[in-house]
Computed example of a mutant assay.
Amino acid sequence: MRPHVVAQVAVSLDGRTAGFDADLARYYAMATLWQEDVTLVGADTILAQEGLLRAAPGGDSRASGPLLAVVDSRARVRSWEVLRGLGHWSDVLALYADQTPARPPDATTRELVTGYEQVDLEEVLRLLGRRGAEVVRVESGGALIGVLLELGLVDELALLVHPVIVGAGEPWCGATVRFRHAGTEVFSGGIVWSRYCLD
């Protein structure tokens, strides 16, 4: 049985995930609600923050923290040790496909290889469930969440909507999925937190 999958995303009024200053403190405070076993992230999200990651103070992994699983079909992420040492996660797991380019022979990051050209996300979730994961929180700029929605693998959607129109870029999702409203909260500055569950 696969874990409960929560997709969390900070968006603008016109459905963009970039081009505005997201309230990251609020975003990460809300993320603690789920106490996830696994944080699932796409390589693009990691690469977009690589400069900030490298500048972050080093530390140790957090034994009680969730596992960080990164979907990286093209083996572009190189900052595994930095991610491991941020103190947020218990460990990191690289999610690769059969056709993912070869990794350095001395790589020490745990790997899960599934799928041929792209990571098989359905199998990843099933395997994580077998390993004891009950809740997976997806943190993404939108592409990974969009794929998971298209595959019917999202159980809950949490949007932190910012009162700004970006007017450029692609919307974070193009899939059509019906959800049931589960709650809304309005914060100072007009930021709206809305949660939805799969029908």
Rank of each mutant, 00 (worst) to 15 (best):
G15E: 15
A18M: 15
D23F: 12
D23C: 09
M30K: 08
M30T: 08
A31Q: 14
L33S: 13
W34S: 00
Q35V: 10
E36R: 06
A43H: 02
T45Q: 05
I46V: 15
L53E: 14
R54V: 15
R54T: 14
P57H: 13
G59S: 07
S61P: 14
S61Y: 06
R62N: 11
A63T: 12
S64Q: 05
L68H: 13
L68W: 12
L68R: 11
A69G: 09
V70T: 02
R76G: 03
R78P: 00
R78T: 14
L86R: 15
D91E: 11
L93I: 06
L95V: 07
D98K: 14
Q99L: 13
R103V: 14
T109L: 12
V113Q: 02
V119F: 00
D120P: 01
L121Q: 00
L121A: 01
E122K: 03
G129N: 02
G132A: 04
A133G: 00
E134P: 01
E139S: 05
S140W: 05
G146Y: 02
G146T: 01
V147E: 02
E150C: 03
E150G: 09
E156G: 03
E156K: 07
V164N: 06
I165P: 09
V166E: 08
P171K: 05
W172C: 04
T176D: 10
G183S: 09
V186S: 06
R195N: 12
C197D: 14
